[in-house]
């Protein structure tokens, strides 16, 4: 019984047409992602400080790798937290 309701819940409800995702780095011609700019990198992590997947941000693979690299460097220098709660609400 419970399973049935679960499945019902998971089935996609009518989805309206979404805007096409794009890679912001490709679009605006950014070649280098700076690990020193913590505020900028906060756009690519969720509230707990985890790196957002490409499927959510739309970043291309080439730049997703660079984002990940930059976030990890920033974490090492304590410019970004490894884990927190409410990262976004603090700012």
């Amino acid at each position: 019984m419970a399973q049935q309701t679960d499945i019902k819940y998971l089935t996609p409800i009518a989805v309206d047409i979404r805007k096409k995702k794009y890679c912001r780095f490709k679009k605006s011609g950014i070649k280098y992602i700076d690990y020193k700019d913590g505020e900028f990198l906060k756009r690519f992590v969720n509230e707990q400080g985890r790196i957002l997947p490409r499927r959510l941000t739309g970043t291309s693979l080439k730049y997703q790798k660079k984002v990940a690299q930059a976030v990890k460097r920033a974490r090492h220098l304590a410019l970004l937290p490894f884990v927190t709660d409410n990262l976004k609400s603090n700012n």
Partner: peptide, 14 residues
């Protein structure tokens, strides 16, 4: 804490 990174041409330009 310290961090040393080598810079590629994009990094230098940036």
């Amino acid at each position: 804490r310290y961090l040393t990174v080598s810079m590629d041409k994009h990094a230098i330009a940036y």
